[in-house]
Design a protein around this nucleic acid. Sequence first.
DNA 1: ACAACCCTCCCCCGTTCGGGGGAAGGTCCG
DNA 2: CGGACCTTCCCCCGAACGGGGGAGGGTTGT
Lengths: 215, 215
Amino acid sequence: MSTTPIRVLIADDEPLVRSGLAVILSAEPDIEVVGEAESGARAVALARDLTPDVVLTDVRMPALDGIQAARRILDTVVPAPRVVVITTFENDDSVHDALLAGAAGFLLKRSRPEAIVQAVRLAAFGDTLMFPDSVRDLALRHRRETTPFPHPLSDREQEVLRLMAAGLGNAEIARTLFLGAETVKTHVANILTKLAARNRTHAVVIAYRSGFVTP
Amino acid sequence: MSTTPIRVLIADDEPLVRSGLAVILSAEPDIEVVGEAESGARAVALARDLTPDVVLTDVRMPALDGIQAARRILDTVVPAPRVVVITTFENDDSVHDALLAGAAGFLLKRSRPEAIVQAVRLAAFGDTLMFPDSVRDLALRHRRETTPFPHPLSDREQEVLRLMAAGLGNAEIARTLFLGAETVKTHVANILTKLAARNRTHAVVIAYRSGFVTP
DNA sequence: ACAACCCTCCCCCGTTCGGGGGAAGGTCCG
DNA sequence: CGGACCTTCCCCCGAACGGGGGAGGGTTGT
């Protein structure tokens, strides 16, 4: 199996991480780093040109995040490479999405270098999933309270929710958006229904927890 | 100036980042990486043993975060090394704390490798601060809404606020804490006054923003 | 053209908030 | 002991909230 090394494309917006990954992987005789991308869009383009065996991509990247990039790569590149998604965050919600997108593996950056190397090899040889324990739990625990927004909010409703999350009352929201107080009430009522919130405070909590608004 | 290289200690909980930093820094002829620590506690211990010129430490680490580690290193290690703090997050609140702790610099991980090298050199030669622009703004914008709690809340009030932040109404809070509804009203009123909040939702927002409750 | 939304505003009405008092018991500290 | 503070509970009352309902005009897509 030493005839053809595993050709790997690295995608991460942090030069530091790209360097780190490149060094670790290049040190292996059976692995060859054929390219580095600093954005999702670039990863897709490079994947088309280089047709690597494995794409190792970060979740968070500018111009197409890792998940979207993975999806597009798997849809458009032939022969399709194996995509391994890597992330910094233990509590990253994207584990599930990554797998749905067809990723072959999911890694934490805190993984030991050997684990990363091993994940690339496993992915290249068609083995299915490489889960650091902490992440595997997440895949299950996920979907639980996560469901960011069961029913999607309309534009106007999102505006209203944002103001609610700033602590404004209905009258203040009405003045801010140049609306009638009645209209705001309607929006708030719809928001509460869509989010299955008990009251406006609970709705705001959901907005925070889902990342819709940031502390 | 080629007589004595700059001796650097790297502290980061991610092996990947440590490798990346080590590679980048070791490539410079005037810089020598003398050690790596994977936790704050270890960084302190190694700093004492190795007396490096510069300690490059991540903010988030197990067993003593980067800030606390920096403080302890600067307090106990002689001769005191220059501490450069590095972080992943643009919106990290710890910039200010890091500088108060006596850090010589603050970097983002997304910085270009040359910037990191340069920061280490600047720190080693006693120059003061190295700020990526995005972080400098933070240092100023900081302190603004940060003030966690103007008046400290009593234990009971904190309990009530926590339940408020879960979206519970006064009656529900009363049942949960085995209190009269009137009592809860009193606590809520006091909380609103102490936090200078306009209403309960605003109080919850303040609780989130201050980190009193986490999304 | 029609359904399916979204946005806007209106009514009623019961519940909850929120601000203003007061008062009792407790601890803790000077 | 006498404040200062926390905790518990009580009153009143106006304002805000939240759940129903309906209605008209807009866009989008089938």
